[in-house]
């Protein structure tokens, strides 16, 4: 009798199981697929929530309009600055903390718990906390800096166009460094002690072990963390909404905030949908580039090793 033999009863049970799950599958498919198809369709129309005299197909007009809209370029610039700034700050500090914690032998649990606390705070709550702390006139941050003599006049954390972006990067980093730290720490902790030991025997110092042995081994973890965080921070909305609402003026209006404004202030659903798809395309493109660059280096490294071996 074949190993893959399935009895009639078993087959019927499987069919029954499938039928039981079918409504839920259809429901979930509609839930996920319908909005995507609907918004994609809407992006090619002049659909407005109010004052619409009918919905007409307008082809790529909304997409082309985006590339003529100074608000789009401003938001793209803001989003890119926040994304690059946040990723740089977050990965730098997460690496430092993960490397330090890995080497701590006693009380590691306490440190890990402390560093993970910000991850448990919702972005909205964190935004409100920091909005108060970064207040120009009675915020804790200016009070500390002034009382310690670091600054003589208040820093306009949220009312200066450049400082407001710095503040958003700061709050976003505070919230998500723990997440990246957790991923990197798990990666570093999984590196075999034997590998580290062999490096030590070969005369590598701590930095060299970290940089030349541990980092290359956890590279896939770093890549996953980078991709997840990139996609997350590129869509940043809640921290900005609570901290600055896109201000001062439009100085911190990210793409998500702009899309919200186009949809709910201008009621221009078609244009907002087009902006959403442009944002999606950018995210997919950057994600692919990150993967390609990383894969290329790995492949070329492997190729070089193979050629060297021959």
């Amino acid at each position: 009798m074949s190993k893959n033999y399935v009895s009639k009863k078993e087959r019927k049970d499987r069919q029954f199981g499938f039928l039981m799950a079918l409504p839920a599958m259809i429901f979930l498919a509609c839930l996920f697929v319908f909005p995507i198809i609907y918004s994609f369709g809407a992006s090619f129309t002049n659909y407005r929530l109010v004052g619409n005299k009918g919905i007409d197909f307008v082809g790529f007009k909304n997409y082309l309009a985006a590339f003529r809209d100074p608000n789009f370029y401003n938001s793209l610039k803001v989003t890119v600055i926040i994304t690059v700034g946040s990723l740089a700050v977050e990965f730098f500090f997460a690496f430092v903390i993960a490397a330090l914690i890995t080497n701590v032998k006693r009380g590691q649990g306490i440190f890990k718990t402390i560093y993970l606390i910000p991850m448990m705070v919702s972005p909205t709550v964190a935004g409100l906390l920091f909005r108060f702390m970064l207040n120009d006139d009675f915020g804790l941050m200016n009070a500390i800096l002034k009382n310690t003599g670091i600054i003589s006049s208040n820093i306009p954390w949220l009312t200066n166009e450049k400082m407001a972006i710095v503040s958003i990067i700061y709050v976003d980093s505070w919230l998500t460094i723990p997440f990246i730290f957790l991923l990197l720490y798990t990666g570093l902790a999984s590196v075999s002690e034997d590998v580290v030991e062999s490096g030590r025997i070969d005369g590598a110092n701590r930095f060299q072990i970290f940089w030349r042995i541990q980092i290359p081994i956890i590279k896939p973890t770093v890549l996953v963390a980078l991709l997840i965080r990139f996609m997350d921070v590129f869509r940043i909305y809640d921290s900005i909404y609570v901290l600055t609402k896109g201000g001062p003026g439009k100085a911190t209006e990210s793409l998500s905030v702009l899309i919200y404004r186009m949809n709910w202030n201008k009621y221009n659903v078609g244009y907002a949908a087009a902006l959403s798809y442009i944002m999606l395309i950018i995210m997919i493109a950057v994600s692919l580039i990150i993967q390609r660059v990383s894969a290329d280096k790995e492949d070329s490294g492997r190729r070089r090793r193979r050629v060297g071996g021959n």
Binding site: G247, P248, G249, W264, K266, Y267
Partner: peptide
Amino acid sequence: DAAAVDAQTTSGQYINMAFTGQL
């Protein structure tokens, strides 16, 4: 009328730009 929300939000942004010295 239907322009109310957009008109107010946009006005708020430009007034704020004057307050913060951007314009």
